[in-house]
Amino acid sequence: MEYEFRRNTLTGTVLATFSMDHEALGFWFAEELGEDTDKYVEICQVIAQLQSSRLPQWRWVGKALSIELDGEQARVFANELENGEELEFEESLSLYDGESEAFCGLEDFYDVLVKWREFLDETR
C-alpha cells in the first residue's frame, strides 16, 4: 500500500492519496480524521485495546465514511454501503469500489496513522 500526504500551501487543506484499492483510506484521513487530535488519540487508544484483546471491535461513523477496527484489520467504507441495497449489473460489468471501501491490516493502519500525525505536525 503506497500513500502520499500533501498540504495545499494556499488553503492549508490536507490531502491523502493512496494506491489503487485503498483510495477510501485517503478520503477518510483527509476528510473524516483531518487534523482532529482528540480523535487521533482516541483511535490510538482503541488500537492498543484491540491489540491486547480487551476490545473485540470498534466502529466510528463519520459524515461520509466510517471506519471499523478489529484485532486484525481496519475497514474504511462509504456510509452509503451500509444501507443494504445491492446493485445488480450485467455479467460483463462490475462495480469498482476502491473509492468506497478499503481494507488493510491493523498494524499497517496504525503505522499510517502515526505517519499522518507526523505529517500534520511537520506542516503546521
Rank of each mutant, 00 (worst) to 15 (best):
S92K: 13
C44V: 12
W58E: 00
S92D: 15
S66N: 02
V41G: 03
E72N: 10
D70S: 08
F89V: 06
S52N: 15
I43F: 03
K63R: 14
E86A: 14
G84H: 01
S94L: 06
S53F: 11
L93N: 10
E80I: 14
C44F: 08
E86L: 11
Q45C: 09
Q73C: 06
N83F: 04
L55H: 05
N79A: 01
E85R: 08
E85C: 07
T37I: 12
Q73L: 08
N79Q: 03
E99K: 07
E88V: 09
C44Q: 15
T37R: 14
K63C: 06
E91I: 12
E80W: 12
V76Q: 00
E85K: 12
N83V: 07
V46L: 00
V46H: 01
V41T: 13
S53V: 06
S94F: 07
I43C: 01
D97F: 12
L69K: 01
D97R: 13
Q57W: 10
A48E: 15
S92F: 13
Y96C: 03
S66C: 02
W60E: 10
Q73N: 09
L69N: 01
K39H: 05
S92T: 12
V46T: 04
L87R: 07
S66I: 00
F89C: 11
N83W: 05
P56Q: 07
T37A: 09
S52Y: 05
S52W: 06
P56K: 09
E42M: 10
P56F: 06
D97E: 15
F77Q: 05
E35R: 15
D70T: 10
E82P: 03
I47P: 00
K63M: 10
I67C: 00
D38H: 09
W60R: 14
V46G: 00
D36R: 10
S94E: 12
E35Y: 08
L65S: 03
V76M: 01
E88R: 12
G98C: 00
E82L: 11
